[in-house]
């Protein structure tokens, strides 16, 4: 049980409000996940093949990804054999430990790379309808609150109403939007935006792009060009390339991470729509296989519903019920 205690101590150090919000957003995830887990432990008293099959199902239902689940299960089987664990209740902490291990591997990388006293350029990429524009609006709001001078570039010149959508966000949070008319070259918009950001001495430039499916070669090339233009104007830009992923997405998210990663050298992931019942388990698989860290999570539709990703809180959110039980056991 020491693992849970350690985890809990570390979490209580952090601000409660953030933890609360995280817990709120994740409550549905947690309910279904932990509920299933507890049921599993109750139903099976011995750790056998059937137990592992059931566990496999639980992880798969969280969209963790077949490959990652298989690896995890194999490791757990070994662990159970090595420690001679027969009782299902004893293996529960081992399971949690493994999950946390996977997530915590690169926790320190979860911070956004923000330059002090010079322009930071953040490029947003992703497939259609994952919430890129909304995420940019939320992030602009956050930076604005921190007193930064923010600009947004309306790089989605393709979808009907996309520029207007960003403009509404601009008005809402009080940030200027650099745009051209619909149908123009997104790379040209980026060029304009960088020039404007330089002359206005902006601190942060948030670049929106049109959603595109990763198997459209031409559109991916367009994206490469957008990035190239940014790099040409400012050598170390973009400082962050954030891939926006919808938490409801299944195994295709892996393909998205791979292809967008190749085209634009993705530096982090924004996991959106985590306030539904979707479990976002694909995070585990992507970290495991591609080592791209999650940097931000979207937990709702409000302006403040974008949070920094914290692996510990994520696990806490997933396992808070289990934590409670661990606590009670410790008190006894």
């Amino acid at each position: 049980m020491s693992f849970f205690k350690k985890l809990k101590e570390r979490i209580t150090d952090q601000t409660d409000s953030v933890t609360e919000k995280f817990k709120d957003g994740l409550s549905k995830t947690r309910d279904s996940f932990v509920g299933a887990m507890n049921e599993l432990v109750k139903d099976y008293r011995t750790v056998d093949e059937e137990f592992f099959e059931e566990l496999e199902d639980i992880l798969i239902s969280a969209d963790v990804g077949v490959h990652t689940v298989m690896t995890l299960i194999d490791e757990l089987k070994d662990e159970a054999r090595r420690r001679n664990i027969k009782d299902a209740r004893d293996i529960q902490p081992v399971i949690s430990e493994k999950l946390a291990e996977l997530l915590q591997k690169s926790e320190e990388e979860s911070k956004l790379n923000i330059k002090e006293n010079e322009l930071t350029v953040i490029l947003f990429v992703g497939v259609n309808g994952v919430g890129k524009t909304t995420t940019i609006g939320k992030l602009a709001h956050q930076f604005k609150q921190e007193g930064k001078n923010v600009l947004m570039a309306a790089g989605d010149t393709f979808r009907a109403g996309a520029i207007e959508q960003l403009e509404v966000w601009g008005e809402r949070v009080g940030v200027d939007v650099i745009k051209q008319q619909a149908g123009s070259d997104p790379a040209a918009v980026m060029f304009d935006a960088v020039q404007s950001a330089k002359s206005k001495k902006a601190d942060v430039l948030l670049c929106d792009t049109a959603g595109r499916l990763q198997n459209k070669v031409n559109l991916m090339k367009e994206l490469e060009k957008v990035k190239r233009v940014l790099t040409r104007e400012i050598p170390d830009a973009p400082h962050e390339v954030l891939l926006v992923l919808d938490a409801t997405t299944g195994q295709n998210a892996m393909s998205q991470a791979k292809t967008f990663g190749q085209a634009t050298d993705v530096s982090g992931i924004v996991l959106t729509k985590l306030d539904g019942t979707a479990k976002g388990g694909i995070v585990l698989a992507i970290r495991n296989e591609l080592d791209i860290p999650v940097k931000l999570v979207g937990l709702g539709e409000g302006m403040d519903d974008l949070q920094e990703f914290r692996a510990e809180q994520y696990v806490h959110g997933l396992f808070s019920e289990v934590l409670k039980e661990a606590d009670e056991a410790a008190e006894d």
Binding site: V127, T248, T249, A253
Partner: peptide, 12 residues
Amino acid sequence: VDAMTGQDAVNV
């Protein structure tokens, strides 16, 4: 429904 939806499609 987004064709890329994962396991959650059932709940939705």
